[in-house]
């Protein structure tokens, strides 16, 4: 029940566990019930705060459900055209090398319309970070087929299920990014349970740290649920991430130059 008084709790010797980062705005979010964006937002916010980057951060929002990330984070933010977040972020980082710059993009944005911008940004080794939300559909426009839609998955533009022979197979972005020279860190994580969330945060912090250290481009792919467009309950959708997404999109760190000096790119911003 909500009748318990907060002040009273504090007076009675209680301390809050896992307090919300201050950079998160205290307002209701527009995301659908069970959507993982909120979990990811919190992880990004925690990582920024714990790494002491909030005050020098410039966020580049993308087009999709998460365009409104700027409503939920007290960060300087510029809104990029659809797919162009990595190019916009390149401009931001080059103009302000002392800023901490990250983009937050969905799968249609990053892996379809913005594939060229994303991969070239990564390949140049821009000292910035990308948080990539992969929920296998275009969420905001109503659940159309995405470049990451699984084979056989029904969407509003693949009503019979994605057909590999005519529509190709899902792009594995974390692996693709790991293959590019300028990438210092690339990992895929999920947010389906506390254990996964703890791992996800570790990965986000590692990707961010690459930028802070000037080591290169950091990339984290978060497998996420979209219950609305998957036509599932939030719990079913959460389970689908485990049972269907993870087997196709394996979790793990695909590149980490901190553990492999051979991968490192030359440092410095210019």
């Amino acid at each position: 029940m909500t009748s318990i008084n907060l002040a009273a709790l504090q007076q009675e010797g209680y301390t809050e566990v896992a307090t919300l980062p201050e950079v998160l705005a205290d307002r209701p979010m527009h995301y659908c019930p069970g959507c993982h964006h909120g979990i990811a937002h919190r992880l990004v916010a925690e990582a920024l705060e714990e790494l002491g980057q909030v005050e020098r951060t410039i966020c580049v929002s993308s087009i999709g459900c998460s365009v409104f990330i700027y409503n939920y984070m007290h960060l300087d933010t510029v809104e990029a055209p659809h797919g162009r977040a990595a190019a916009v972020a390149t401009g931001v980082k080059r103009a302000r090398p002392d800023a901490f710059v990250f983009t937050y993009q969905g799968d249609g944005d990053l892996a379809s319309i913005g594939l060229a911008e994303s991969m070239h940004c990564a390949n140049r080794g821009e000292k910035l970070s990308i948080v990539f939300i992969n929920n296998t559909v275009y969420g905001m426009t109503g659940g159309q087929m995405a470049p990451t839609t699984l084979p056989g998955q029904k969407t509003t533009t693949s009503p019979g299920g994605r057909c590999a022979s005519t529509e190709g197979l899902p792009l594995k972005m974390a692996e693709i990014m790991a293959g590019l020279g300028g990438v210092a860190y690339s990992a895929r994580v999920a947010t389906t349970s506390l254990k996964r969330i703890v791992e996800a945060k570790k990965a986000i912090k590692a990707a961010f740290q690459c930028q802070i250290d000037g080591r290169g481009f950091g990339f984290v792919e978060l497998l996420s649920a979209c219950p609305t467009n998957w036509r599932m309950t939030p719990l079913q959708a959460n389970e689908r991430v485990e049972k269907e997404l993870i087997p196709y999109f394996p979790l793990g760190v695909f590149k980490d130059d901190a553990n492999d000096p051979a991968c490192s790119v030359s440092g410095g911003d210019s």
Binding site: E16, V17, M29, G38, R42, L194
Partner: peptide
């Protein structure tokens, strides 16, 4: 609290 996508849950630990 950490999985709640809407930050609707707060957890307080009794200090003792």
């Amino acid at each position: 609290a950490r999985i709640c996508p809407d930050f609707a849950i707060r957890v307080f630990r009794k200090k003792s």
